[in-house]
Amino acid sequence: MTSQPKSTKRTQIPGELVFACLLLSLSLLIAFYALSISGFSSMSSPGSIPMLAALFMLVSSLITVIKTTGTTTKNSTFITRLTPPILLFFASISLTYILVIDQLGFLISSGLFLFASILALYRQGPSIAMLVSINTLAIIYIIFRLIFKVILPEANLWE
């Protein structure tokens, strides 16, 4: 029922099989934890729905793994297809941003992030990047902090 003739002839994307296997192991892990919540103690135990969900994950990821094996890889590598340099750069700079936001505070960390990433992605020189960053920050600050009184992360590096 689930197998469509189209998908079996399909070439796979680099790393697809590995990814499918990763999801299968994730399902196994989740099934293991779901089982440990309350086991099969009763119909209404807290673990019943998590176990059922884990079962669905297991079966469906297994099907995906089986369907993916046997397909051939297209002429491209994992790097070019999934993680081109620009993506790696942007992902790591975003990750750094969210990791330091608590220490540097919202304004400084977001400012640095915006400036650096716009500089790299838009490639029209630092002055535009700077201007756009400042404007964006100001607008966000006014809407969130001043109008809606949302507390934004504040620098606690020097406290």
């Binding site: 975003s94 941003y97 977001s110 992030f113 915006l114 716009i118 992605l121 838009y122 756009v132």
Partner: peptide
């Protein structure tokens, strides 16, 4: 190049 960083923030 401008929109994507702003979306992240």
């Amino acid at each position: 190049g401008i929109l994507l960083p702003i979306i992240v923030v």
